[in-house]
Amino acid sequence: MHPSAGRRRFRPPQGDCYATILVDLETRRPVDVLPGRDAEPLAQWLRGHPEIEVICRDRASAYAEGARSGASQALQVADGWHLWHNLGEALEKTVGAHYHCVRAVFAAPRGTAAPPSKGLVGADQAAPALPEFRRMGRWTGPDARADW
């Protein structure tokens, strides 16, 4: 097995139990399936595989503890899906908080500076409520426009 492994929490198709699947990051093939989503089964498995150098995981504390106690020599890294997901959520919040500023920039004629937006929030003001989003970043609030 390659010295890097990833793990993913998943629910088998039958029953209401959960399991942890271990994947070789080089070959992208499953290596093993562990019962549950607890730290100890992962730690035990890692103790039996001291060649593991990198563990790719989400931010679940049980997996962090299992990796720490089972393979203290391994570097723990965040998996790509969760990094992109968290980045998307942060971008959505930021755009929502500055919605009026963004609209002012797109409303200004080309070659001119956009006037300051009334929606800017100073340090002494309360932040306005965020517009609601649908999946894929489409606006659904009262100011929603189809041509943006």
Rank of each mutant, 00 (worst) to 15 (best):
residue 1 M to L: 13
residue 1 M to Y: 12
residue 2 H to D: 11
residue 7 R to S: 09
residue 9 R to P: 01
residue 9 R to D: 08
residue 10 F to Q: 03
residue 13 P to D: 07
residue 17 C to R: 14
residue 17 C to G: 06
residue 18 Y to Q: 09
residue 19 A to P: 01
residue 27 T to H: 11
residue 27 T to S: 10
residue 28 R to Q: 14
residue 29 R to G: 08
residue 33 V to G: 01
residue 35 P to I: 09
residue 35 P to C: 07
residue 38 D to K: 11
residue 39 A to H: 06
residue 40 E to S: 10
residue 40 E to M: 08
residue 42 L to D: 00
residue 44 Q to P: 00
residue 47 R to S: 04
residue 48 G to A: 15
residue 50 P to H: 03
residue 51 E to P: 06
residue 52 I to N: 02
residue 52 I to V: 12
residue 53 E to G: 14
residue 54 V to A: 03
residue 55 I to K: 00
residue 57 R to F: 00
residue 59 R to E: 01
residue 61 S to P: 09
residue 62 A to G: 03
residue 65 E to W: 05
residue 65 E to M: 05
residue 67 A to C: 02
residue 69 S to E: 08
residue 70 G to M: 02
residue 71 A to Y: 04
residue 72 S to F: 04
residue 73 Q to F: 01
residue 75 L to R: 11
residue 76 Q to A: 03
residue 77 V to G: 01
residue 79 D to F: 02
residue 79 D to H: 02
residue 80 G to E: 12
residue 83 L to I: 15
residue 84 W to G: 13
residue 85 H to N: 05
residue 85 H to A: 05
residue 85 H to W: 01
residue 87 L to P: 03
residue 88 G to Q: 14
residue 88 G to M: 06
residue 89 E to F: 04
residue 92 E to S: 13
residue 92 E to K: 13
residue 97 A to T: 12
residue 99 Y to K: 11
residue 99 Y to H: 11
residue 102 V to M: 02
residue 102 V to C: 01
residue 103 R to I: 15
residue 105 V to M: 15
residue 106 F to Y: 05
residue 107 A to D: 15
residue 108 A to F: 05
residue 109 P to Q: 07
residue 110 R to T: 11
residue 110 R to F: 09
residue 112 T to V: 15
residue 118 K to M: 11
residue 120 L to T: 15
residue 120 L to Y: 14
residue 121 V to E: 04
residue 121 V to R: 13
residue 130 L to S: 09
residue 131 P to C: 06
residue 134 R to N: 10
residue 139 W to K: 07
residue 140 T to E: 11
residue 141 G to P: 02
residue 142 P to R: 06
residue 144 A to V: 15
residue 144 A to F: 09
residue 146 A to D: 15
residue 147 D to Y: 05
residue 148 W to Y: 14
